[in-house]
Design a protein around this nucleic acid. Structure first.
Lengths: 243, 243
DNA sequence: CCAATAGTGTCTGTGAGACATTATGTT
DNA sequence: AACATAATGTCTCACAGACACTATTGG
């Protein structure tokens, strides 16, 4: 083994760089938003892109994703949820050299506006349904992130990661409607959410006042201990995606 | 941009190598099997591991996965299905240097025994529920691949990727039972499979003879054009995995 | 004949979705 | 008073799962 290590020379392999890119999502003003940055350095300086960058020598991949997100956007709050999305390694996806990118998907509650950090000229939350062209293959990465997020709301209680510590059933429904882009039936949604074991648990509290246009005070809930929703909360049927 | 490329020096970054590892699954003798190889070179020479290796300069990631699978196992048949699984980049997961591995999940019908190829001392199909320790973090990668496969059979028609061009409903049921490790109700499964639009389509043919222990000739089907099963074919409830 | 298998029929319980209703708040 | 919203009730249809049953083959 020692002799092998001595004879092994990494420089014999073509150099490859590894980056992480983050699809950070939130719900603002009833629309799904993604965090994008304006690149301050080449390549693609001036273009919008997902936050991300090269991994550091002694850092795990998920750590790098959290670090890059904080560095480029000035957000000091860790996202409520982060998971690996996919990897992209087409030989010419980066003009500098061979770059393999590991993408991460993050969910955050509605946070303050970000500020541009290292290597970024600007950082903003932008609605996902009205995006500028993105650098590299980030448009495709984002699309896969959004689709993964939509699917995950069906099977997992992760919608609560977009909400604050406590929330009403109506707020939770607005999150689902915003992420899926579909109106849901308020009454059926209400009954369904409360019937899935471990999805939410009551706090005993209610909102301070009724809604802006009236109505009774809503009960407040927090996230329950379920990791999977059973039965699942399925999107209205999407016949077109089946074939 | 040109000036940037001139000033950029990849050697300034710590060297990272990128590998692909493949979790290739098949169903043999009513049990789920995975393709593993006995490593012929250090590190972990003599240990069992997933087939895989370093990517080449002008090769996309999925291409590398298919190539490594063929090279190390002598199988010339492309798997019926291959998809990206996840990436692993813990700093010390490989003793040689920083190695980031992209894992792929492949489904194949029951193929001939593999033969050891480059860098491999042996290559075999091995039942997944009775495995030797695997090199690196391959045990974890395999576990995630098996779980992904089990989940995918619920929502997609990929079980047909384990079967031949044509198959009977009973053969399809045996695939589900083998992958999930659960007996299924033959009658209900039969009705369910035929009722999901696009899952299978009849060929008009039947088997040449009845089963080895009797029974009528079964109708033959081939894979249909659905990409998703709707409604899904859910596993018997797994309460323990919900919390 | 017996046993195993292919395929279908029937019943029940659960849950999704449409719709209605009551209560409680704001403007 | 008018209206929006929270929360619950009711009905119907689809479907999963249990069970029964017939038909067809091999041993």
């Amino acid at each position: 083994m020692e002799e092998f290590l001595a004879s092994y020379n990494p420089r014999l392999y073509a150099p490859v760089a590894v980056t992480v890119d983050v699809v950070a999502l939130t719900v603002r003003d009833r629309r799904l938003h993604v965090l994008i940055v304006e690149r301050g350095v080449e390549p693609y300086a001036g273009s919008w892109a997902l936050p991300g960058g090269f991994i550091k020598p002694d850092e795990d991949l998920a750590e790098a994703a959290v670090r890059e997100l904080a560095e480029e956007t000035g957000l000091d709050t860790r996202p409520a949820h982060i998971e690996q999305l996919a990897s992209y390694g087409a030989p010419a996806r980066d003009p500098r050299m061979r770059v393999v990118s590991i993408s991460y998907l993050a969910f955050a509650p509605d946070l303050p506006d970000p500020r541009a950090g290292s290597d970024a000229a600007a950082a903003v939350w932008h609605p996902v349904d009205d995006l500028p062209p993105l650098a590299f293959d980030h448009g495709r990465i984002l699309a896969e992130g959004v689709e993964r997020a939509r699917a995950k709301l069906e099977y997992t209680p992760l919608a609560t990661a977009f909400a604050g510590d406590t929330f009403t059933v109506s707020e939770l429904r607005l999150i689902y409607e915003s992420v899926w882009g579909t109106p849901l039936h308020a009454g059926n949604f209400h009954r369904k959410v409360l019937s899935v074991p471990g999805f939410v648990e009551g706090t005993g509290e209610t909102t301070e006042s009724g809604g802006v246009r009236g109505g009774p005070r809503a009960k407040l809930y927090r996230a329950g201990d379920a990791r999977l929703l059973h039965p699942a909360l399925l999107r209205p049927s999407r016949e077109e995606e089946i074939r």
